[in-house]
Every structure is written in structure tokens, then in C-alpha cells.
Nucleic acid binder design. Sequence first.
DNA 1: CGTACCCGTAAAAGCGTTCTTACACGTGAT
DNA 2: ATCACGTGTAAGAACGCTTTTACGGGTACG
Lengths: 110, 110
Amino acid sequence: MTQAGPTGDDLVEMLAALANPLRLRIVAQLAAERDYVSHLARVIGVSRPLLHMHLRRLEAAGLITGSLELSDDGKAMKYYEVTDFDLHLTAAALAEAAKTLTGPGPEEGS
Amino acid sequence: MTQAGPTGDDLVEMLAALANPLRLRIVAQLAAERDYVSHLARVIGVSRPLLHMHLRRLEAAGLITGSLELSDDGKAMKYYEVTDFDLHLTAAALAEAAKTLTGPGPEEGS
DNA sequence: CGTACCCGTAAAAGCGTTCTTACACGTGAT
DNA sequence: ATCACGTGTAAGAACGCTTTTACGGGTACG
């Protein structure tokens, strides 16, 4: 088993989070430098509500983390940054992860 | 630039193809041994039309390849097998791939 | 001819994702 | 108070993905 990777379900969630052009851009931008929501929305060119939703999805997958901080002039800013994830995808690795899938199974009853 | 990975759009397509429990099971099963559609459907426990659609998606992403072969008794069998893909996903790698995204862009007009 | 395998496709229901618009709340400066 | 900046959430349209059911064609065997 060597590398104890993520569980099957977690892997699917991570891949689903990355399988989107906009979210890929978000991760790319945050990889360059951590940023807060409103500014990030301006840089990438999307509305804040939309960005908020994508950030939620990325954070739920464990790819980024957000922390609420107070700026010098008292505003509450939410800064996001990427986590140190490192996924290696090969047919063998996927086969290993697939063993721990809970969702739609072969349904082995008696 | 080092590793000439897939283009941004291709990466999204691959990730989207893998971000599904059923397709993950399909890849895992094909990694164990190549198989033809009807048999694979029975092994995994899904209908053939449904499996057919997922195989199409996986093949379009370049993760599996199908070849039509004739069995000894003259039946046309379509065998699928996994390709030797090897994706390394890190924040830096994604940032590199994001540069070649064509889809929803910052729309830089004058 | 009827059955049993194999291949493929089309139409329609059900569901989740994506995106826009509009709203609510807080602080600091004019 | 009004404006500018930050935060978050809710409702609804539009769209694509997943899945089922039904139909079409092909070869070999009894």
C-alpha cells in the first residue's frame, strides 16, 4: 500500500473541485499569493457571490484554507491560501483509491 | 517549464472524467485487466447504455482506449484498456496549466 | 425461425452545478 | 447620514450531467 493517499470519496471530491476552469484559475492565483475575497474577485473578474461559492467548494475539498483577519482600519478580511497538496494520479493509484468508495457499489447482498 | 504537461482545457477534461465514483471504478477495473463492454457492465453492475456513455467520456479524455476485435465465433467485441497516464497535481503544476485555459477569461479588451 | 450473445443510439426524467441579482450586516471617513 | 470598503446569504434561471427505458443492427447455434 505504500503511500496512504486520500480515501476514494475524498479523491472524487478533490478532483471534482479541480475540474473547473474558474476554480483552476482561483487556485493558480492563490498559489502566486494569498488574497482576500473581494480583491480576488476583482483580479479574476467574477462576482463575489460566485467566487464565494467556488471558494467554499475548494475549501471543502481541502485544497485551500481561509482565515478571518482584521486589517489595520478594522475591516474583517477573509484571506485564502493554498494547502500543500500533492496528488499523484496513475491507473494503479486510482485502483487503490477505488477500493474505498462508499457510493454506488456492486451491491453485494447474500 | 520542465514537464510539458497537458493543456489547461485538457487537464480539466481529464479531471472531470475522473471526478466520478462510477468512472473511477471503471478505470480501476480496466487497470486490473482489459475487458469488453458487456462483460464489464456485468462485473461493475450497471446497464450497458450507461457504461457506454462513461466509456465515451473516459476515452475522450484520453484515459482509456477502445479497439474493436473479432472473437473466434465471429462476434464484434469492443475491448477497452487504460492508457499510461501519469498526472502530478500540485499548486504549482495547476498554476502552470491554468495559463493555457481558453474558456472564461478576464476578458482583456482595451 | 427463434434464441442468445455482441455492438450501438435516441428520448426523456431527475438531479446537481453554475451564475446572476438582490439583500443584509459591520467599520471608518467625509 | 451617506459613501466606500469589507463580509455573508438567499432565490431563481439556465445549463449540463447522470440514469433509465426502449429501440436499432449484427453473427452463430439449435
